[in-house]
Amino acid sequence: MSNHWTPYREPYKHGIAIHNFTRHAPSSPKLPLTVGQKVTILARSTDTLWYYGETVYRFGVESVTKNPNSPAVARRGIFPCSYIHEIYKSDSIVDEITCVLREWHVLWKTLYLRDRDGFNSLQKKMFNLIQLRRKIVSEKLPLDELKSVRSVASTMMDVGNKTLGLDLVVRDENSNLIKPKDVSAPNMYKLHAEANKRIRVSLKERPNSAYSDMYTTMCHSIGKFIF
């Protein structure tokens, strides 16, 4: 029988779920998706009705309220093409902001448990950053203004990270936070080195950052704030 699936090659396409695709049987090959969730598309069925792919970010499982030992939700599976809105690669700073916002969001929820003032002030910062991100995404700003918005956003992220006492966190290629228990020690070392390099590169891209020295002196404690 001829193969039903056409695999995609790198760079993979991404898509956004436009509706909730949930409540599958536990052993179902269907990937549970919630609206707005980003997916990487790995293959498409030849009848163009189904995609096979994985979720880029995992929601819920990382949330502070869940027991970290609970079984991870499946990350790969099939989903109908009709549920996916294909998207194109965005500005790298947009991805960075997205990533920082997700990280802050996790932290924000832990602050909710123990530090009301910190919680409120971080909320304000997050709203500001969301606003800036939206401006950049709109693609309506002229270059000069865009440049200044980007610079404001980077500073806001740097200052935010510093005040939050956030260390270097190690991420995989999709900017997912990596849990130490998922990775072997040599691999962790490798990933850490890569992360350092990435940050150094991004610092070169925005030399205006007033906090450039903070990264170089930063020691890293893996997952200090994550669980």
Binding site: N3, W5, V35, G36, S45, I87, V137
Partner: peptide
Amino acid sequence: IRLLDAEGVKFPNEPPLVPEEPLN
């Protein structure tokens, strides 16, 4: 936060049709 990546994407009110499951 969950809708960050979906900026500018329109969501239909009704869920799209789910096709029949693939052959393999």
